Amino acid sequence: MNEGEGDAAIPPIEAGPAPPPAAPERPSDEDILAQQNLLRAEQAQRSEYVGNEEPLSALKEEYINGNQNFVSKIQKLEATYKAFRRTRGDGNCFYRGLVFAYLEGLLLNQDMAECERFTSVVQSWKGRLVEGGFQELVFEDAMELLLDQVKAVRKPQSDFGHEGLLINMRDDMVSNMIVMFLRLVTSCEVQLHEDRFFPFILGMYDEPPATVELFCQRYVEPMGEESDHLHIVAVAEALQIPVRVVYLDSSGAPSGGGSGLEVTTHDFVPDSCPPGTTPRVHLLYRPGHYDILYPR
């Protein structure tokens, strides 16, 4: 056998088509939610807890190239509201907007009678919170910080003015401790009137917490948890502050002539208020967020 005679050339094995690249793994719902929360937190850190007063035209500009129903509603709001003030979108915007707008009203109107009434109501919550199982050590300093803002309004010849209130409510410690106190008051109010609030809880969640106490521990007391109808009812009752919420969303019936949707408003007036009581605080609700409104 000649050299190489038995070594017949072996044809190369032809490679088949390359497998398609693996599809990127879809992020889980938890990953998506975590990313959204991170973006939201980063955006929130770039804004003040309480912003400056702005004309409603600034809000309208946000939607001028997008949601025309919102533009139409804002145009209607301009007939009754002159301005708005943004609050940080950190989940605490309802409480922060509520307390700033209320204290600002006391300051601008120099309403001494209301200062005294509010002080008395806040002080009365000390005993109720303790009876409700909250440790005085946890909330006492926060309660005093809130009362300090009212004292500054009442003090004759005080140099505490609008700028002073803004500085305090933009301060991390002062602002967040006051919000924390309001959350505890809301929680205690809900638990003290369980029969009234438990039907709300049952209607709000597919898997509602088993008890009002568990609901409050999960959705009311923690900082950053968003607020809805139940929270507004509870804190308005607890502090006896009438609140109006204007809803900038897709709710409402078409207005006459087909020019967009009517603005939906809801007044949360405590049972203790006499008939005809007008709201002391006006808030603008956009899905997931509350800002402050200023009536004309």
Rank of each mutant, 00 (worst) to 15 (best):
residue 196 R to C: 08
residue 198 F to K: 05
residue 45 Q to E: 15
residue 207 E to G: 09
residue 255 S to K: 14
residue 272 S to H: 01
residue 249 D to E: 01
residue 217 Q to G: 15
residue 146 L to Y: 03
residue 54 E to K: 15
residue 271 D to A: 13
residue 17 P to Q: 14
residue 211 T to Y: 06
residue 190 V to L: 14
residue 255 S to Q: 12
residue 57 S to Y: 09
residue 11 P to L: 12
residue 248 L to W: 00
residue 135 Q to F: 15
residue 56 L to N: 03
residue 232 I to R: 02
residue 141 D to Q: 14
residue 89 G to C: 09
residue 231 H to L: 03
residue 40 R to F: 06
residue 256 G to Y: 13
residue 101 A to H: 01
residue 286 R to L: 15
residue 135 Q to P: 08
residue 226 E to N: 12
residue 264 T to C: 12
residue 171 D to N: 15
residue 30 E to D: 14
residue 208 P to M: 09
residue 195 D to H: 06
residue 247 Y to N: 10
residue 7 D to E: 13
residue 263 V to M: 07
residue 248 L to K: 01
residue 275 P to F: 06
residue 191 Q to R: 15
residue 270 P to A: 04
residue 132 G to P: 03
residue 180 M to F: 14
residue 1 M to E: 09
residue 42 E to R: 14
residue 118 F to L: 11
residue 214 L to V: 12
residue 226 E to H: 08
residue 265 T to N: 08
residue 278 T to P: 00
residue 79 A to R: 13
residue 116 E to G: 05
residue 88 R to L: 05
residue 177 M to E: 11
residue 236 A to K: 00
residue 138 V to M: 12
residue 190 V to H: 01
residue 121 V to N: 01
residue 138 V to F: 12
residue 182 L to E: 01
residue 193 H to V: 02
residue 10 I to M: 10
residue 53 E to T: 14
residue 229 H to Y: 10
residue 205 Y to Q: 08
residue 116 E to L: 14
residue 259 S to I: 11
residue 183 R to A: 02
residue 144 E to N: 13
residue 72 S to M: 10
residue 118 F to A: 05
residue 47 S to A: 12
residue 75 Q to D: 12
residue 279 P to V: 04
residue 190 V to I: 15
residue 175 S to N: 15
residue 195 D to S: 14
residue 280 R to C: 03
residue 255 S to D: 12
residue 163 E to A: 14
residue 126 K to Q: 12
residue 112 M to F: 13
residue 294 Y to A: 03
residue 184 L to C: 03
residue 48 E to L: 11
residue 282 H to A: 01
residue 48 E to M: 09
residue 1 M to H: 11
residue 120 S to G: 15
residue 172 D to Y: 08
residue 206 D to P: 10
residue 121 V to Y: 04
residue 50 V to L: 08
residue 143 M to N: 00
residue 291 D to R: 00
residue 93 C to S: 08
residue 56 L to T: 03
residue 158 S to F: 10
residue 197 F to V: 06
residue 278 T to W: 06
